[in-house]
Design a protein around this nucleic acid. Structure first.
Lengths: 242, 242
DNA sequence: GAGTGGTCTAGACCACTGC
DNA sequence: CAGTGGTCTAGACCACTCG
C-alpha cells in the first residue's frame, strides 16, 4: 500500500559511486590498473560479487576495461583500441587509408553566448578555439572548429598541437588530465561556405555534413564543444542502432 | 603453454543461444512473457543465476524487457516506449509536435543489383518498394524509400499502409511476423533533386541528410533496406557516443 | 500471500597472465 | 606458481505486482 524508500539504492550502486569518485578525483588514472576485485571487496566490506556488479556497469560504460588474468584498468584514449572512439567515419569504397590531423589555428577568445551556454561558462570567461583538418590518404575530409574552456586548457598552443602524435582526446588526457567519457552529437546537412569549401576541396555551396558535438568528462561536465564539417563525397558517417 | 579449447563457451551463453532460438523460431512472441527465471533454470538444469546472466545479455541487446514483479517480456515495436526506437530526430527549437506517416506509393519490382546484394536476394527475386513521407506538426521532414523482400512481405498494399496506425516496424511485426532487432546506418549530405525538393518543401539543390539503413531481424538476417532524405532546416539527427 | 525479478553472500572451481 | 578476472552454484532475503 504505502510506498516506502523511493530513494532505494542497491549496495553495488553505492560501490559504483565510490569508484566513480576515485576516477573523477584522479586517484585512479587512465591506463593504470585499479585494485583487484577481492581487495576492493575487503576495502568496502562487501562480497566480491557486489564489487563485480559495480565494475560490470563501469566497464559497460567504457570507463573501465577488464583484462582477464591481468586486472581491471582505467580506460584511456591513449589505448590504440580507443583511438577513434568518437569518430564514426568510413570510406564509401576501399580502405580509410592513413589519417592525419593538421592543426590550422589556435587562439584565445572570450566565450560567446552559445559556447558559454554549452560549456557552462560565463561570458567573461576565456575559451580556446582550435581549427584543424582531418585528412585520410592525404585528402581533407573533416574541418573541425573546437571550443575548450580556457582555464582548464590554458597553455595549449598551435605548436603543441602540431607536435602531438595521436588523437586530440589523448592529448587532452595526457597533458591536461581531462578524460572525455561520452559525447552527444547533432547532425545536419548544410551548404559549404567559401572558406570551408576551399579547405575541403569542394565547390562552394556543396552539401556538407555538419556534426556538432558536446563532450563530457567524468561528472557529466561538458568540456568540449566542437563543430565538424564532413565532406561526404567519398566517406560516410556510420551509426549502429541497437 | 599450449592453447586449449579456443572455442570455449560458458554455460550462460549456451543458454542464451537456446533462448535466441525460441525467439527466432516464434515460440516466444513479441509482447508476451517468457517463462520465469526459476522455470527456465529447471528446464535447462542450471542455477537461476546462470539463466539470469543469459537474460541480462538479451535484455542489454533490447531483445527482452524485464519488469520487476511481473516477468520478462519479448521486446515489441508495439510497445509505445519502442515506437521511435530507430528514429534519431529532434527539433532544433521547441517540441517535435505530432508525427504522421504519409504513404505515397507502394509497388512490386525485380530486385536491382544493389537491393539484391544488401538484402541477400537473387536478381530474379521480387521486392516491394514503399515511398512515404514523415511529417512533424504537419510539415514534411523525411522522405523515405523502403525496399523489402517480396516473399516475406507479400500482400502489403498502399491501402494497408494508409490504414495502419503506428510505426512501420510495428506493422511488420504484427502483420508479417518480422521483428527488426538492430540496424546499421550510413549518413551523407546530398543535394536535393527536383522531386524530393518539392515533396519536402525545400529548394532544388538544397542540402539534405541522406540516411541509408539496413535493418536486421533475429538471425542477423537483413530484412529492410531504406534510404531517407531528411530536411535538417528545423530538425537534427541526434546521436549518443558512449 | 504467492509469484516475479533484484540483490547479496560465500564458496568452489575455471581460464588466463606473468614471474 | 600465485594472482587476476570469469563462471557457476545454492540459498537467503528484498522490492514489486496482482488478485
Amino acid at each position: 500500500m504505502i510506498q516506502v524508500s523511493p530513494t532505494f539504492s542497491p549496495l553495488y550502486r553505492q560501490i559504483k559511486t565510490l569508484m566513480l569518485q576515485s576516477l573523477a578525483g584522479g586517484q585512479w588514472r587512465p591506463g593504470e590498473a585499479i585494485p583487484s576485485e577481492s581487495e576492493l571487496a575487503q576495502r568496502f566490506s562487501v562480497s566480491q560479487g557486489t564489487v563485480r556488479k559495480a565494475v560490470d556497469e563501469l566497464a559497460a560504460e567504457n570507463l573501465l576495461v577488464r583484462k582477464q588474468g591481468k586486472g581491471t584498468f582505467v580506460a584511456s584514449h591513449n589505448d590504440p583500441r580507443a583511438f577513434f572512439r568518437f569518430l564514426r567515419l568510413t570510406a564509401l569504397e576501399g580502405e580509410m587509408g592513413q589519417s592525419r590531423s593538421v592543426p590550422l589555428e589556435c587562439w584565445r577568445a572570450k566565450a560567446g553566448p552559445e559556447a558559454a551556454r554549452v560549456l557552462g561558462l560565463n561570458l567573461a570567461d576565456s575559451i580556446i578555439v582550435v581549427r584543424r583538418v582531418l585528412e585520410f590518404s592525404d585528402k581533407p575530409v573533416v574541418l573541425d572548429e573546437i571550443y575548450l574552456p580556457g582555464n582548464t586548457f590554458a597553455g595549449i598552443s598551435l605548436d603543441e598541437l602540431k607536435t602531438w602524435q595521436g588523437s586530440l582526446y589523448s592529448l587532452f588526457e595526457s597533458q591536461f588530465g581531462v578524460r572525455m567519457v561520452r559525447a552527444e552529437e547533432r547532425l545536419r546537412a548544410v551548404a559549404a561556405d567559401r572558406v570551408s569549401a576551399e579547405i575541403l576541396g569542394v565547390a562552394e555551396g556543396a552539401p556538407l555534413l555538419s556534426v556538432e558535438r558536446v563532450s563530457y568528462s567524468y561528472a557529466d561536465k561538458p568540456m568540449e564543444w566542437r563543430r565538424g564539417l564532413y565532406s561526404t563525397a567519398s566517406h560516410a558517417y556510420i551509426n549502429q542502432l541497437g
